[in-house]
Computed example of a mutant assay.
Amino acid sequence: MKIAFYGSSIVSAYWNGAATYYRGLLRALALKGHEITFYEPDVYDRQKNRDIDPPPWCRVVVYPGTVEALKQVTSEASAADVVVKASGVGFEDNMLLDLVLANARPGALKIFWDVDAPATLAELRADPTHPLHAALAKLDLVLTYGGGDPVVEAYRSLGAADCIPIYNALDPETHHPVPENPDYTADLGFLGNRLPDREQRVEQFFLEPAMRLPQQQFLIGGSGWTDKPMSSNIRYVGHVSTRDHNAFNVTPKAVLNISRSSMAENGFSPATRVFEAAGAGACLITDHWEGIDLFLRPGEEVLVARDGQDVIDILASLSREQAAAIGRRGMERVLAAHTYARRADEVDALLRSHGARTREAAE
């Protein structure tokens, strides 16, 4: 099928946490024979901070952040069998959704792909006039980055024809064990951008434990932390290119996943970081969220912290040998059950079944 996908960016992970999700899933879909064009706006300096060149398995169209350019690229939706508008594109999202739906040809499968469903649903509940309310009646399917039954039920109650979570996963060709890099040596590493609905949790799960464990070394990477007060045993390395994520994950004794507040409260929303770290063989410590046991076994394949004190207690007793064993078991689990090839099987089946229904309805 010809797929027109309108998202934030596939070539740059700069201020764009969905990049590796897009790459892993769309690459796996392309290997199934789908012809994909990814449309992304030139905003937020993402094009100045590319992690990859346009991949051979996907045509990439970068358009200026102007309304005129938006109208031009959305006109190409008329040639696609499947039209996808992702959440959080970053430039005129509401107009983009309207234009994509207006330009999609009769019989095309129209999808809203929500990569931050808890936050989007909060907006919809707070604003009855939000344009997505009206758009849901025109969409054939809502796919989400995660969220489980609470998100599915919420979207259906708001009028979505159907809602199906397509969880994050691992691309083993991208995230895998590599030699350690001394630049990332630490007892605990955390990689994540500074975001309003994550910052307080970073303070609780990372900054405060670091302050209370002065003999241990901590490492933080990601954008936006330059002026954040930190104890002297924390080293900040700024934005970390995706090409260096494997080394960042395998070098510290353990790495920490901290969910955004809305995702932690909703549960069933494993971040890309969870699978990237496990795929590299890292010992992962994650904050607690409902549903983690569906993906990794707590205590065996992942360590779970309910608060900063748990992080302190884990680090106080965790040996390098124990960390390596946990990382090894976590890697074996994600390779067996949570690859993008498996997720692409799900999406491929959905595209074919829902696409057939949509074509029949249009005839």
Score class of each variant (00 low, 15 high):
249 N>L: 10
84 V>K: 00
314 I>T: 03
73 V>G: 01
161 A>C: 09
231 S>A: 15
225 W>Q: 03
111 I>L: 10
37 T>K: 09
292 I>S: 02
306 R>I: 10
108 A>E: 07
108 A>N: 05
61 V>R: 06
266 N>E: 12
328 R>Y: 13
229 P>F: 06
166 I>Q: 07
10 I>R: 02
114 D>K: 05
252 P>S: 08
273 R>A: 11
95 M>N: 13
170 L>I: 09
324 A>I: 09
196 P>N: 10
349 A>C: 12
52 I>T: 13
196 P>F: 12
30 A>S: 15
218 F>S: 02
197 D>E: 14
52 I>C: 12
125 R>P: 00
38 F>H: 01
60 V>H: 07
73 V>A: 07
53 D>G: 10
20 T>E: 13
181 N>T: 07
230 M>L: 11
297 R>E: 15
103 N>C: 10
340 Y>C: 09
335 L>S: 05
173 E>D: 15
131 P>E: 12
272 T>G: 13
229 P>Q: 03
287 D>G: 04
150 P>E: 08
137 A>Q: 13
290 E>F: 10
293 D>M: 10
115 V>H: 13
145 Y>I: 11
316 A>N: 15
305 A>L: 05
268 F>I: 06
46 R>V: 07
21 Y>Q: 01
303 L>M: 14
320 R>H: 15
338 H>T: 04
45 D>R: 14
40 E>H: 12
57 W>N: 09
201 R>H: 11
190 F>N: 00
116 D>H: 08
222 G>H: 02
176 H>P: 01
362 A>S: 14
125 R>M: 11
